[in-house]
Structures are given as structure tokens and as C-alpha cells.
């Protein structure tokens, strides 16, 4: 229990809407060990983004607890980095200045020069060397997403939360970014939570996959990924991968209510 960096226990949450409360999370349990990388998959609209907002402390759950590094999350904290499907870069800043933004907010030990050196290093790591002074609109979608990853990591967060960051990219760019994620993970000691719709992405990047049921979501299934650490795209074409994907796909079908639980094919 104590070694879990992120610990979500029995979380329930409902949005108050014009047409009454909309229960979104209903008894969710997820725990991620320090340095781990968990992928969360589930039907569309089941509450995955809501989960990320709870971990980030942007909202408080109606019931249950979210723990981060041994303390209860009740408000945002600077040890979290976030990236979304929309890279949300600020158009009036250069790429470098965009990456540096979190350092202007959070208390940091880095000096201005060190921060900039770190930003340049991260940008180089994701293949954006030479684009530091460009405007976001001068970059492609994949490049913007890479810059957004650098921004999420610049302040050395303990936890990196990724909400479908590669969802809007084409297949080749996405696979590129998967490799980049592994390169970043090898250098940066973050604990990761990845929301995704792509089952291949989930087993390629994470070491544990959590399947959420349809709304209101609870933890339906947890799969431990057999491969650990950096991996190659070839891994996705092994029999083990095929088996994991099969299991996950089946679980998603259950979550969507298309297949009855227990009547496994």
C-alpha cells in the first residue's frame, strides 16, 4: 500500500447537470507504484478525463479518496504535469517559452539558465532541436504534441498525466511518439497515467492496463503487461501481444455492454 505513488480508493463522483446528477465514477480503485506507467481504457464518455482531473486535484470526488505520494489530494499541486489531446500551446510564445511556462508558476530550484538548458535538452530529446524559437502555428500537429510533452515534464513532475495525447495524430506519427515516450521515460523518473482509446498504445507504453466499465465507471479489469521497460514496435506483433489485445478487446466489449460478462468467447 505504502509504495503506491498514486492511490485511488473507492472514488465516486457525479456531475451536477441541468437534468439532475449524472453519476460518472462509481467505486473506482486504481493504484500505481512509483515509477509505474498505467494506461486507462474504457468506453467513450465513461469518465476517464474526469479521473485525470481528480488525480490532478482540479476537482474533488464526492466520495472516496485520491492519494498522491502519501498525502491526500484536495487541490492542484505542482508535482503534476499534464498533456491533453489538444496541445494547447500559447501562440504568443515561442516553443521554448511555451515549454518554460510551468517554471514561471511552480516553485523551482532551477535557475533561469538551468531551466532553459533543461527545456532545450527535452526539446532535443523529442526531436525538436532547432525549433525552439518557432511559433506553435509554424509546427505540425505531431511536433506541437511533442512540445506539449516537454512542457508537461519541464518542472520534473512526480506524476505525468496524459489524456489521449496522441489521439488526433496519424498512425505513423503516433508510433513515433510512442518511441519518444519510452526515451523520455528512460531519462525522467516520472510515474505515468495514460488515458487512451488505442489498445495497442496501452500495452506498448504501460506496464499495467486498467479497463473501466461504461458510465458510471468502476474498475472492471486490470491487466499486467508482460513486457517491462523500453520496447520495440515488433513487440506488438508477438503472440503474447495478440493475446493481451484480445483480452482487452473482449473487456471493452463487456464494458460497452455488447457482451455479457462471463460469456467469454
Amino acid at each position: 500500500m505504502s509504495e503506491a505513488l498514486i492511490d485511488i480508493r473507492g472514488v465516486r463522483h457525479a456531475y451536477r447537470t441541468a437534468s439532475g446528477p449524472l453519476p460518472v465514477l462509481d467505486g473506482l480503485d486504481v493504484s500505481v507504484p512509483e515509477g509505474g506507467f498505467v494506461a486507462v481504457v474504457g468506453p467513450s464518455g465513461c469518465g476517464k478525463s474526469t479521473l485525470t482531473r481528480l488525480i490532478a486535484g482540479l476537482m474533488k470526488p464526492d466520495e472516496g479518496e485520491v492519494w498522491l505520494h502519501g498525502s491526500r489530494v484536495t487541490s492542484p499541486r505542482s508535482t503534476v504535469g499534464m498533456a491533453f489531446q489538444n496541445p494547447v500551446l500559447l501562440e504568443w510564445r515561442s516553443i521554448l517559452k511555451n515549454v518554460l511556462l510551468p517554471l514561471e508558476i511552480v516553485p523551482t530550484k532551477l535557475s533561469k539558465a538551468d531551466g532553459e538548458a533543461r527545456a532545450r535538452h527535452l526539446l532535443k530529446l523529442v526531436g525538436l532541436e532547432g525549433f525552439e524559437d518557432k511559433r506553435p502555428s509554424e509546427l505540425s500537429g505531431g511536433m506541437r504534441q511533442r512540445a506539449s510533452l516537454c512542457r508537461a515534464l519541464i518542472h520534473q513532475p512526480e506524476v505525468l498525466i496524459l489524456d489521449e495525447p496522441f489521439g488526433a495524430l496519424d498512425a505513423f506519427t503516433r508510433e513515433d511518439l510512442w518511441q519518444i515516450m519510452h526515451a523520455l521515460k528512460a531519462e525522467e523518473p516520472f510515474t505515468g497515467v495514460l488515458i487512451t482509446h488505442d489498445l495497442r498504445e496501452s500495452i506498448f507504453l504501460a506496464d499495467r492496463v486498467v479497463v473501466l466499465s461504461g458510465r458510471p465507471a468502476r474498475t472492471q479489469y486490470v491487466l499486467d503487461v508482460n513486457f517491462k521497460g523500453p520496447r520495440d514496435i515488433d513487440h506488438l506483433y508477438t503472440p503474447e501481444a495478440a493475446e493481451m489485445l484480445n483480452t482487452l478487446r473482449h473487456q471493452i466489449e463487456i464494458a460497452q455492454g455488447r457482451t455479457e460478462a462471463g460469456h467469454a468467447a
Binding site: R53, A56, G57, L58, S75, P76, R77, S78, V80, M82, F84, N86, V88, L90, L101, P102, I105, V106, R151, H155
Partner: peptide, 14 residues
């Protein structure tokens, strides 16, 4: 203003 812009800073405690 798209909520994500807010969230980027809010999640850092701004």
C-alpha cells in the same frame, strides 16, 4: 477560453 488552457495552469496551482 478553452478549459484546457485554464487547466494547464490550474493543475500547477496557479
Amino acid at each position: 477560453l478553452e478549459p484546457e488552457y485554464r487547466d494547464i495552469l490550474r493543475s500547477l496551482g496557479a
